[in-house]
């Protein structure tokens, strides 16, 4: 299974789950990172971390350590 961290620049995938503690899960789901939504890698910071994703039509930044908790499936 792939995680969000492995998504390539410009690629889009579908979120299939978030493996994390309740707090992180709640934080991510309030920002739209939840099963069924599609997500695109839009940009990377100069050192490759954090990264900008597009989810639900807006830009969201995540550190790679958080992106690793999100499971995705290629579209």
């Amino acid at each position: 299974m792939k995680t969000l961290k492995e998504l390539k620049l410009g690629e889009t995938a579908t979120i299939i789950g978030v493996e994390a503690d309740t707090i992180s899960q709640n934080r991510l789901s309030s920002m739209g990172v939840i099963k069924g939504n599609s997500i695109t890698l839009r940009n990377k910071a100069p050192f490759g971390d954090p990264r900008i994703y597009i989810v639900m039509d807006y830009e969201l930044t995540l550190r790679n350590q958080d992106a690793q908790m999100v499971q995705i499936e290629a579209n």
Binding site: S24, R27, L28, M31, P50, I52, Y58, E59, L60, T61, L62, R63, Q65, D66
Partner: peptide, 11 residues
């Protein structure tokens, strides 16, 4: 905990 950097980038 290392707090997450979950941030919206507004247009």
């Amino acid at each position: 905990e290392n707090e997450a950097f979950v941030m919206e980038l507004p247009p």
